[in-house]
């Protein structure tokens, strides 16, 4: 979904940076590019991809903000960093968010799309500057978190897009995420995207006909006509209908319990391909349809 949003924005003339938080390289692959690093690399016209690396982010921060040269003076940086980051909760998160906010404020890109980790974790990231502010009363970090908060709290600059599927657990996690974003962060939920929505197979009158076709007499007429048992084909359609139904229930729960001001965008299940640029394009075009672009 991150790749699709980046693709869509780029098609509409924006310079986009897409950032992978989990350095799995999956995001670059959605553009058929090799694994990305901490330095943004261009993967398509107007689209650059980077992978978050908190250690590199710290190094950059020290260099730019504090003008501390890195030659051995602060000892084995990696080890120290690893330790401090583990010891002081929020350090990793602040470096992640800090780097992203910095890219935003520098204006190299018009849009920074971030592929955030699992939903529980994103709250700690977005809430990190605030949590830091509560823990650290003075010091250089304090001035740093203030400008990050400015960016994150401005709905004109930052929006969270929650991506879910129409299933029980993902929907309840999304609702929980929406509540936590409201309670624990200053950021705003911009939209909820529901991915892999199964197509509605029949209208109600068609369904009545379908039930008749499943009666033994009519199914054997069809089997004779096509020269093979139509049973499995009808059974598959019934399975598709029930799957769609049970998912529709979860979709309704989502729509009912979500703040009505948050738009819910539906992206259909793509049967043919499951990765790479091809599916990025398809998802981008479904998103464009949903947004009326």
């Amino acid at each position: 979904m991150t790749a699709a949003l980046a693709q869509l924005a780029a098609q509409r003339g924006k310079r986009v940076l897409a950032c992978d938080i989990d350095a799995t390289g999956g995001l670059a692959a959605m553009f058929e590019a090799g694994p990305s690093g901490f330095e943004p690399t261009q993967v398509a016209p107007s689209i650059s991809v980077m992978s978050m690396d908190t250690e590199a982010s710290l190094r950059e921060y020290l260099k730019i903000q504090l003008r501390i040269p890195l030659a051995g003076r602060i000892g084995p940086l990696a080890k120290v960093f690893d330790f401090v980051a583990t010891a002081a909760p929020g350090v990793r998160e602040i470096l992640t968010v800090g780097k992203l906010c910095w890219e935003v404020s520098e204006g190299h890109f018009d849009l920074v799309v971030v592929d955030a980790p699992a939903s529980g974790h994103v709250v700690s990231q977005l809430g990190a500057p605030q949590a830091m502010n509560d823990l650290v009363k003075v010091g250089q970090i304090r001035t740093q978190t203030d400008w990050m908060l400015d960016i994150l709290s401005d709905p004109g600059q930052t929006g969270v897009v929650a991506v879910t599927t129409p299933e029980e657990m993902p929907v309840s996690e999304t609702l929980e995420l929406a509540a936590r974003i409201a309670d624990e962060t200053t950021a705003q939920l911009a939209a909820v995207v529901v991915n892999r929505v199964l197509p509605e197979l029949f209208s109600t009158p068609e369904e009545a006909v379908f039930e008749r076709l499943r009666e033994p007499e009519l199914s054997s007429t069809i089997s004779d006509a096509v020269g093979g048992d139509v049973g499995p084909v009808l059974e598959a359609a019934r399975l598709a209908v029930t799957m769609r139904r049970s998912r529709a229930v979860h979709l309704r729960v989502l729509q009912e319990r979500l703040d009505p001001r948050v738009p819910v965008l539906l992206v259909p299940y793509i049967f043919t391909r499951v990765g790479g640029l091809r599916s990025t394009r398809q998802v981008a075009s479904s998103l464009a349809d949903e947004l009326g672009l």
Partner: peptide, 28 residues
């Protein structure tokens, strides 16, 4: 095939196509 069935062809034809399409999609 719809012609051989007693059901309303206006509903049956699109229905059969959808059923077929769905099977092929899920089969893939």
């Amino acid at each position: 095939i719809a012609g051989r069935l007693p059901t309303d062809p206006a509903l049956t034809v699109p229905l059969l196509r959808e059923v077929a399409e769905s099977f092929i999609n899920f089969g893939l």
